[in-house]
């Protein structure tokens, strides 16, 4: 009993253990998961994030001009799967945890980007230009390829270009050179 009285006394001396939030600062770690953000310069619209999202918080709407990627922040369960599996590292977590909002704003808390296609530098097919960093990373092992050039080519032209430039050219019958049908 005496032990606990001692504990109580210490608690009285040391004051409240809770932070004075919202009137003062509170513990806010750097890695806290607040909101999911998309880097529109990196997104390729591949749909991997939507595929792994257990909460169904991500939607990708496509048309002939490009696509619109939307994240409903209120549906997101912050499981970080999209950040983990995004092949382009376009998704990130913002540590802003101030997510309290009024009821009428619940559908407005979204992260939305509309990204347009650009014509392929060779054949003119509408396509997405890959970021330079990612192109450098992907073709790091192949010094014959110029990342700046290859990132402006569509998938079919990229394969052809890759084959033309490579010192080792393997003939593979399973690579289709026909333009890939756009997924909906």
């Amino acid at each position: 009993m005496a032990t606990f009285l001692n504990t109580l006394l210490q608690n009285i001396i040391s004051g409240p253990a809770t932070d004075p939030f919202p009137f003062g600062e509170t513990f806010s770690p750097k890695r806290v998961r607040g909101l999911i953000r998309i880097d529109r310069d990196l997104c390729l619209g591949c749909g991997m994030c939507r595929h792994v999202c257990a909460a169904g918080a991500i939607n990708i709407q496509r048309n002939s001009l490009g696509w619109t990627i939307t994240i409903w922040q209120d549906s997101c369960c912050l499981c970080r799967s999209c950040v983990t599996y995004c092949p382009m590292h376009a998704m990130s977590i913002d540590p802003n945890w101030h997510s309290a909002h009024v009821e009428e704003d619940k559908y407005k808390r979204i992260e939305q980007h509309t990204i347009s296609y650009q014509p392929c530098a060779r054949c003119g097919t509408p396509m997405r230009v890959m970021s330079l960093e990612r192109a450098k990373e992907l073709y790091a092992a192949d010094p014959d390829i110029d990342p700046e050039e290859i990132r402006h080519l569509c998938r079919s032209c990229r394969q052809i270009r890759d084959a033309e430039q490579s010192t080792v050219c393997m003939l593979r019958s399973d690579i289709s050179t026909a333009p890939a049908a756009e997924k909906s």
């Binding site: 595929h51 792994v52 999202c53 257990a54 909460a55 369960c77 499981c79 799967s81 599996y85």
Partner: peptide
Amino acid sequence: HRNLIMNQTLTER
């Protein structure tokens, strides 16, 4: 009814 990666999030709940 969910894929293996989605189930990772589901089983946590």
